[in-house]
């Protein structure tokens, strides 16, 4: 009556059943509404941009695994996140070949060089973007107007610029709300910002859809809500204080929250599990640190936007936050010694 062999496995014999590729896949799902809005707002160019950056990341991951004689890790979906996320941070009419280069660098330098998924110190997409920013300072700050007539049929000429050629721009929008404020002192309407009715990077404009994606992930227990909440609260409180001190010189907290890449960064970049701390306490410190850096860079730094650098810096200190803030082990008085 019995099968000849029973299997042996070690305890526990129950599993929660959420695996790493499930988490990664869901992060991709969560980014889709914001991506769809980006395509809606900026048209075909952004569609091509996102496809290019995503495909390049996946391809790079696959080839690097092959060349180093490992099994391809494409199926864990993390390369898709990197590629798509990078695409969302780029200007809408960004040349595709540059985006391609950015994705290759993101995966090769940001992830593979560290040892692959789980070992990256920084969020790979941000590494890619940082390199692009250094290499192509003009292209990455040239903005394209949203909701152009004919955006679903025409491709911006800069999008198809040939490699190593100076891209030509047919329509250039004045400035993003952040740089408009920083350099011209003009503050955009917060409601327009939240709804994404402004110009900016492809995927960072519609804060509401980004938040929606975040709520989805938090509800599925696939994102640590403490990270975005502590970042946003810090930015809100600090910029609130500054605005109260001098409303002329400093933008309103709502403007700070909804402009630029803050939402995208707080929800999808800072929450990279690998590059953020492990403990709940550590995560809050990390979030506050990012918020602080964002405000400092935006209000007093030379750049209109500071989210990318803020997160990269926080990524770098995250292991130290962890070792400084280990949980107190049960039954001990002192904290466990950090390794």
């Amino acid at each position: 009556m019995f099968k000849q062999t029973l299997n042996i496995s070690t305890s526990p014999h129950l599993k929660l059943g959420v695996s790493t590729d499930d988490i990664m896949r869901n992060v991709v799902w969560a980014m889709l509404p914001a991506s769809a809005f980006a395509v809606y707002a900026f048209g075909l160019s952004v569609f091509l941009l996102l496809v290019t950056s995503t495909a390049a990341a996946v391809l790079t991951e696959h080839l690097l695994c092959r060349w180093s004689g490992k099994e391809s890790t494409v199926s864990d979906w993390s390369a898709v996140i990197t590629g798509l996320l990078l695409g969302l941070t780029l200007p809408p009419a960004f040349p595709l070949w540059m985006a391609f280069v950015g994705s290759v660098i993101a995966v090769a330098l940001g992830k593979f060089a560290f040892g692959g998924l789980g070992y990256n110190t920084f969020n790979p997409a941000l590494v890619g973007r940082a390199v692009l920013q250094a290499a192509f300072p003009a292209a990455i700050t040239t903005w394209h107007p949203a909701f152009l007539e004919g955006r679903f049929t025409d491709i911006a000429s800069s999008t198809l610029a040939l490699p190593f050629m100076e891209p030509t721009y047919d329509a250039v929008s004045g400035a993003t709300p952040l740089s408009a404020f920083k350099f011209d002192g003009v503050a955009a309407d917060s409601a327009d910002l939240a709804l994404g009715l402004v110009s900016g990077s492809a995927g960072e404009t519609c804060a509401l859809l980004i938040v929606l994606g975040g709520i989805y992930l938090v509800a599925r227990n696939m994102m640590n809500w403490r990270i975005p909440v502590s970042i946003l609260l810090t930015v809100y409180v600090l910029s609130g204080i500054m605005h109260w001190v001098d409303a002329e010189a400093y933008p309103s907290p709502a403007f700070m929250l909804f402009s630029g890449g803050l939402m995208l960064g707080a929800v999808f970049m800072a929450t990279d599990m690998v590059a953020s701390p492990l403990t709940s306490k550590g995560v809050v410190v990390y979030g506050v640190l990012i918020g602080l850096l964002v405000v400092v860079i935006r209000l007093w730094g030379g750049l209109p936007e500071g989210v990318m650098y803020a997160i990269l810096l926080a990524n770098a200190v995250s292991p130290h936050i962890d070792s400084a803030l280990q949980n107190r082990v049960y039954g001990t008085v002192k904290k466990a010694k950090a390794a």
Partner: peptide, 20 residues
Amino acid sequence: KVYPCIKCGACVDACPLSLN
């Protein structure tokens, strides 16, 4: 399938002894 540790912290939040 075994993946590398993605530092998600789930185990840290599960351990009743607050080990890491």
